[in-house]
Amino acid sequence: MTLTFVLLTLAKILGFILVFCVILAAILTWVERKMSSIIQDRIGPNRAEILGFRAFGLFHPIADMIKSFTKEEFVPAGASKTLFFLAPAFALVPTLCAFAVVPFGPGDLVISNLDSGMLFVFAIMGFGIYGVTLGGWASASNFAMLGALRGAAQMVSYEVSMGLNVVGIFAVFGSVSLTAIVGAQGHLLWGWLPMWGIVVQPLGFVLFLVAAMAENKRAPFDLPEGESEIIGYFVEYSAMGFATFMLSEFLEVIVIACIAATLFFGGWQIPWLDPTGTAGGWITVAQVAFFAFKVLFLCWFQMLIRWTVPRFRYDQVMSLGWKVLLPLSLANILATAVVLALVV
């Protein structure tokens, strides 16, 4: 472990996680409000202004930040104080860790090139349940507890099918390392079609997206939050605690976009251009930019779904997870295995 290695890693963490992802998450809070409003034929927030500039409401995330830093941090009577303050961190930190294995550019442009790539993501995202359950339990509130129970049940059920959905990808590309998967997606099928995950695993992509959105607990799967009946695991949180839960939710949108882009949309690959990622120079910059574009597009796509679909009923969520997604992902694995056995 040389000093250069440490410095380089720190630079990558700073650039990718802190600058790109966290700032993107802050901007996504603005995108979410603005997008919902223009889908519903409204204008949306546009009043926060600095020196007379309004910038389409882009200052609202800043105003939100100032507000949540200065508001009173309320702790309900009977709450377990330590856990109450730890829970938002338990929600935020695993989400941030998941970015560590995402290759955002060719070659060394990944914070940690783990061989167990995707397995690490699953393991670390499984930690997210702690944030939910601890937040709900430590609040000493029945509604928060109900939300936490819903959240835990939902996350556990969908984690199963989310894991099984990407087995097809592992089988096709022969690795669980995200870097290797992106590298393998540079191949061409029949000499012209980029062998992206969505081409070889279309059903896998749809199932993965559904499972991942359910895992993220956003509408149409927002039962643990239940805004309309105020059953939510963070119902007792105010100020920064609440903001941290919100931030981790938006970060999770970005994680899903990053993972989906990596597994199904070729990561940083630009079709027919430098598939090995050794060209360097401006091509590398273009590849990083293209990865960022894919992530932005997938974030936008998730928001479009979120503002299109009404919420499921709780029993529908459960039966969708266990009776539809699970058999379909098993069938997907079987079909992939049969095709691979016949072709390869």
């Binding site: 997008m35 223009i38 889908i39 034929d41 409204r42 779904i305 503002w307 299109t308 679909v309």
Partner: peptide, 24 residues
């Protein structure tokens, strides 16, 4: 779902580019 996404997507792009539908 695709039909619904087409509706919300249409509103999104029309209002993003022309602000035609906005009633506020």
């Amino acid at each position: 779902l695709w039909k619904g996404m087409k509706v919300s997507g249409r509103h999104f792009f029309v209002n993003l580019l022309t602000q035609k539908g906005i009633v506020t």
